[in-house]
Amino acid sequence: MAGELIQEERKLENGWTVWMVRSRIDLKTADEVYKRGEEIIAKSDKTALDMSGVEYLSSAGIRAMLRLNKLARKSSKEFTVVGANGMPKAVLEDSGMDVLLKAKESVDELI
């Protein structure tokens, strides 16, 4: 369910907008995650996707992140992922996306 998949975003004092996704980012949910990220990027200069609640990340999920990253770059905005762990972290590292997306260990690293 969308309400459980994507949490309400919160804005940090330093301008970062952090939004959390839970459960899975796969073929079924990737589009929804992308659309939500698209909305948040449109109104925020610095956007961080908190993946600490993501248990599974498929290639469709990686593509969604790549698209959001490209969208941010086009608008001269920043996009990163934080808190990935477990399988998603491994996927990001295996695909080299952790470097490309400037992945951070936790939200604290944004502050």
């Binding site: 790549l66 590292e93 295996d94 695909s95 080299g96 996306m97 490309l100």
Partner: peptide, 12 residues
């Protein structure tokens, strides 16, 4: 050392 997937990073 991991390589990028193909099509994502132009100058990989």
């Amino acid at each position: 050392k991991k390589n990028y997937m193909v099509g994502a990073v132009e100058n990989a």
